[in-house]
């Protein structure tokens, strides 16, 4: 790397002036052509389905040649009709999972990050083991925990309990929360750790000299300074948790009130010949997640792009 560096810097700069005058304009044009393909691809892959599902949701589901235009009838049906319980039930389940798993993962993740930030011996082992749950496919995680939560499985055997975990609502939900927390808390810990490592040591030193105890240092220095990284991690996790599919789909197949919005949409796509209602469901799911993200950014002032600048500086320093 250093050789290359010298090669390039060796000839003394001849035309430093030219660069300043021409770059700005041609940069814009070049940038446009470099970014265009990615934007076009995403517009086709994502824009087309979103628009077409919105359009399709405005039409009825009668079998035959021409489907009638029904306006918002599908939405009214899903939200307030006879079967509206299905939608609201799975929306409630989805938000329940999101709130509970993200809270647990944030608490455990923060604790793990604080430990990892302190530990000097065995730091490599720590970081390595933290990556293991993240690397295991969620589908495999689901199968693993499904067997662990078997009535004669390891969990009941270790705890001496006799619970049919996948048999009723709350045990199923608790099992899914535990499985998700195991898989994702380490990942949250990594995100928070990146924020912790930006805090310079001398801030703590100064506080120590001023007589602040460990609790005060955590509350008055660590928490405020790690807040941006923490909020970004929570935002990412909330949006991810609202899309939850793999775990409940394999665990209970959505039985016992563990049907999330994603499972509901997939079911309506695959097993029912109702593209209109399916379109309405997927549009509503999209809207719910979008509104949640928007509210999150507005209320808590999460600055995802700005936070990236911080991780950047961290990367340079390490």
């Amino acid at each position: 790397m250093s050789i290359r560096h010298e090669e390039i810097q060796a000839p003394p700069s001849r035309t430093r002036r030219i660069k300043a005058s021409t770059s700005r304009h041609s940069d814009g044009r070049l940038a446009f052509w470099l970014i265009l393909p990615a934007i076009v691809i995403l517009t086709i892959i994502m824009g087309y389905p979103v628009v077409s599902s919105i359009v399709r949701s405005l039409f009825g589901d009668t079998l035959g040649e021409a489907v009638p235009f029904v306006g918002l009838a599908n939405y009214i049906d899903v939200l307030f009709g006879n079967d509206s319980g299905t939608f609201w039930g799975s929306a409630g389940t989805t938000y329940f999972f999101a709130v509970v798993t993200v809270s647990l993962e944030t608490l455990i993740g923060l604790a793990m990050a604080l430990i990892m930030n302190k530990a000097f011996r065995g730091r490599g082992l720590l970081r390595a083991s933290v990556l293991v749950p993240w690397a295991i496919p969620t589908a495999v995680t689901a199968v693993l925990w499904k067997w662990s939560f078997d009535p004669v499985g390891i969990i009941n055997s270790l705890t001496g309990a006799h619970i049919v975990w996948t048999g009723s609502e709350w045990p199923s939900k608790i099992a899914i929360v535990i499985a998700d927390t195991w898989k994702t808390a380490p990942f949250v810990a990594l995100l928070i750790l990146a924020g912790l490592q930006v805090i310079p040591d001398d801030v703590y030193e100064a506080a120590k000299i001023d007589g602040a105890n460990a609790m005060q240092r955590f509350r008055l220095i660590t928490l405020p300074l790690v807040r941006p990284a923490l909020l970004v991690a929570i935002l990412f996790r909330v949006l991810d948790a609202l899309r939850m599919y793999d775990l409940p789909a394999i665990f209970t197949h959505g039985a016992n009130d563990t049907t999330t919005l994603s499972i509901l949409v997939v079911q309506s796509t695959l097993s029912q010949l109702k593209p209109g209602v399916g379109g309405a469901l997927s549009t509503l799911t999209f809207l719910f997640i979008f509104i949640t993200a928007f509210a999150f950014v507005k209320v808590l002032g999460v600055d995802a792009v700005g936070a990236d600048e911080k991780t950047k500086t961290k990367e340079v320093t390490t």
Partner: peptide, 28 residues
């Protein structure tokens, strides 16, 4: 490169990566 709308484009990419997969699954 320096160009206008850089941050908007970057934020859009970030937003699309948070996009729920189910929203495109049914029509696709």
């Amino acid at each position: 490169l320096n160009f206008k709308a850089k941050n908007i484009v970057l934020a859009t990419f970030l937003a699309t990566s948070m996009f729920p997969g189910v929203a495109i699954l049914t029509p696709l």
